[in-house]
Design a protein around this nucleic acid. Structure first.
Lengths: 167, 167
DNA sequence: ATGACTATCTATAAGCT
DNA sequence: TAGCTTATAGATAGTCA
């Protein structure tokens, strides 16, 4: 009875898996509701059951609004100043910027322009980092990152063991 | 001490709200990870912090794939209060997101795909970094990177803890 | 599937450092 | 700013109806 510790892997028994899905889906949506209410943030949650049934939740705004916000973030950018998809675009944008600088007589305006652009790029950098860290999480990745991560994990395992011994 | 019952409304104290967001975000992502693993289902979770920072999670498949699956559903099945109005835009953008990875090479398996994606994102990151440093050599990129690394480590710590509990 | 029950496990608000 | 601890509220696996 009660709740034994559950191994974090797919529940093989079909019935048990479906019951768990039903319960945990409710719990997950409740948690999503709570964080969006308590912390006043946008949340969109999409869950497909194994049979393909869709369950969604969003707080504050509708799901599609949050998705649009998400989709717009990494690639599209409203406003004429930037549209960076790859190096070539970036270089072109950079060249345009420099031209604008050279053509402009008013230094202050150029600085404002650059400041704004830098700010936008920083936002994208942050998004990229999140995106990268997401893919780094559970997926096979290139060997350099793998090595770095393995070292990190080994170090922590060592520390946890040490701590465990201390207890 | 302990945990008094919390009113289900926006936490007015800013610091407390941010702390709650940070904690609950981790908890929510963990729950999403658990249901996707235990029940073997597609989950996509998108959270925007109040400052606009994006956090995402998805199990099994990538966020874009789950979103595409969602957007591509017949309107009837998208749920009661949901209707994608700019479906074409969303699909096109999601396809672009995917094509960016597929374009470069003939990618056949998911491992290659992910490796390619990571490498591409890293490429962009590096370009962005250079771009930023070109305009602004003293940007606090290091502290941002530190933050990212800390997040990564925190994530691994709870996994190691979980693993420790299993032993 | 859906709904209690209940024993445990988990999440987390405050407090503390 | 940030962790770490602690005590309690909340989530849930197994079970039965």
């Amino acid at each position: 009875m009660g709740k034994p510790k559950l191994a974090m892997k797919k529940i093989e028994n079909k019935d048990a898996r479906h019951v768990a899905f039903s319960k945990r889906r409710q719990g997950l949506i409740k948690k999503a509701y709570e964080i969006s209410t308590l912390c006043d943030v946008d949340v969109a949650l999409i869950v497909f059951s194994s049979s393909g049934t869709l369950y969604t939740f969003s707080g504050r705004n509708r799901v599609e609004d949050v998705l649009t916000r998400f989709v717009d973030l990494p690639v599209k950018e409203q406003g004429p100043s930037i549209a960076i998809h790859n190096k070539q675009d970036l270089l072109a944008t950079l060249a345009n910027l420099k031209n604008e600088e050279l053509q402009a007589n008013n230094i202050t305006n150029s600085e404002e322009l650059i400041t704004e652009e830098v700010s936008k790029c920083q936002d994208r950098l942050e998004t990229m980092r999140r995106y990268l860290s997401f893919f780094n999480k559970d997926q096979p990745i290139n060997s350099h990152l793998l090595d770095e991560r393995r070292n990190c994990i080994n170090e922590m395992i060592w520390r946890v063991r040490e701590r465990k011994v201390n207890l």
